[in-house]
Amino acid sequence: MKNILEINKLSAGYGALRVLHEIDLSLNEGERIGLVGLNGHGKTTLIRAITHMTEWQQGSIKFCGEEIGGIRSFGAGRRTAKLVKMGISVAPQGDAIFPGLTVRQHLNCGAFTKIAWKEKEKRIEMIFDIFPPLKKLENSLVGKLSGGERRMVSIGRMLMVDAKLYLIDEPTNGLAPKIYSSLLKAIWELNLNNSSMIIAEQNINLLSKNVDRVIGIYAGRLRGEVGHVELK
C-alpha cells in the first residue's frame, strides 16, 4: 500500500512556544485516521504544521515521498497554496470562510488547481449531492449562513480538489448534535478512492467506529492508538 504521509520527529510551535514534541505518524493510501485530544493539546497545530501554517517547525514531513517539512511561516502560509496544488486539501478549524462570496463562488475558490478548475461544475454538483441544503443556497452570501451551513461550505470547498490527503479540523465544533451528526454522516460516506484523511476531533465516540485508527494526542505528544494506550 502506498504511503501518503510520513512524519518523523516533528516539533512545531509559535514563537517561544513549542506545541508539538517529536511526533511520528504514518498514513497509507485509503486510510482514515482520527486524531483525538483535549483543547490546546496540539491537534490543530499538527494540521497547521503539515500545511506550513506554524511559525516554526523541525523534523521531517514526507508527502507521497516528497519532503515538505521544515518550512516556517508568519501569517497566512507562504507555501500552503503550493501544498494544496500538490494534493493536500484542508477544512480548517473555524471554517476560514469568505463572508462576502456566494456559496457557488466560495466552492469555486476550492478549485484553484488547474484540473479542479476544469472540473468545477461537475464537482459543485457532486457537493450539492453530498450536502443538499447548499443547492438552495448557492447564490446566498456565505456570511449570512448558519454555523452548520458554513461548515458544509467549508468541507465542500475542501472537496472541490481531488486531493490525496484531506485534513479536517474539528468538524463538529460549536454545532448542535442534530446538525453535526448529518455532517459527519456525509464525511463517513465519502468515497476516498486512493486518498487518505486525518480528522481531528475532541469527542472519541464520534470517531471510533468510522475511522481505521484513532490516535490520541496529549500535551503535544502522540499517545499511540486509543484503546491500547489510555489518555490521561
Binding site: T51, M53, G75, A76, G77, R78, T80, A81, K82, V84, K85, V90, P92, D95, A96, I97, F98, P99, G100, L101, C109, G110, F112, T113, R157, V161
Partner: peptide
C-alpha cells in the same frame, strides 16, 4: 476577506 482561508484554497499570496 480571509488570507488564511485563501491560502487553504490554493491561492498564493505571493502570486
Amino acid at each position: 476577506q480571509n488570507p488564511e482561508g485563501a491560502a487553504y484554497s490554493g491561492i498564493s499570496r505571493r502570486t
